[in-house]
């Protein structure tokens, strides 16, 4: 059960541990107790207990005793405490029930929030006025949109170009510039009809 090893093996182990801990540490805030123990939320107690022992065995701070990186040791310690916390809650049937309810509520709340956020995002996308990011950009953008509404395509084009001076990377502006450009060209073609009256 205890065997000798080469320096190469030890280095591989350190590297493997580092990758594992860094990945887990990044995800830690998003993981619930079931995910930490890597079990299905509907698992019976025996499965959770086995999983807990496997995780504890893998993540115990003593495994990192000779790891050269202090930060990794700290993170491993934190993750191990989360493993213990997960087991302490899930091993007590009452605490597990309460946690499940909380988790369910949390998920519902999360999904409601997500829905709301998605709706807001959609509304934002529907109203192009929100595309402007700067105050000055917004000023010309607003004028451009008014021009568009009034079918003043060349004015619209010019105002978008002004707006782009302030926000050169604004993809929405660029998109609309093309649209306005095309419309203006079409308009110009139509304007060849000398009888068409311009409404000022």
């Amino acid at each position: 059960m205890i065997r000798g090893e080469t320096a190469g093996e030890a280095m591989d182990q350190n590297l493997q541990q580092t990758v594992e801990i860094e990945t887990l540490n990044e995800l830690l805030n998003e993981l619930d107790y079931y995910k930490i123990l890597q079990v299905d939320p509907l698992s019976p107690m025996e499965v959770i207990e086995r999983a807990y022992r496997a995780e504890a065995r893998k993540l115990h701070p003593d495994r990192f005793a000779s790891h050269p990186d202090r930060e990794i040791k700290r993170s491993a310690n934190k993750i191990y405490r989360m493993v213990l916390e997960s087991w302490n809650t899930l091993s007590d049937p009452d605490a597990r029930d309460a946690y499940d309810t909380e988790l369910e509520d949390g998920r519902r709340r999360m999904s409601e929030e997500a829905k709301k956020a998605a709706e807001e995002a959609a509304a934002r996308a529907a109203n192009p006025i929100h595309a402007a990011q700067t105050e000055k950009g917004l000023k010309f953008w607003r004028m451009a949109l008014r021009n568009w509404h009034d079918k003043e395509y060349s004015g619209c084009k010019m105002n978008i170009q002004f707006a782009l001076n302030f926000e050169p990377d604004n993809e929405v502006f660029k998109e609309w510039l093309e649209k306005a450009g095309a419309a203006a060209t079409e308009d110009a073609n139509e304007n060849r009809n000398p009888y068409k009256l311009r409404i000022v």
Partner: peptide, 16 residues
Amino acid sequence: AYNLTQSNTETASILM
């Protein structure tokens, strides 16, 4: 003491 000073801890016993 041996467990804690081994560079490869994969095979060491774990005390909780």
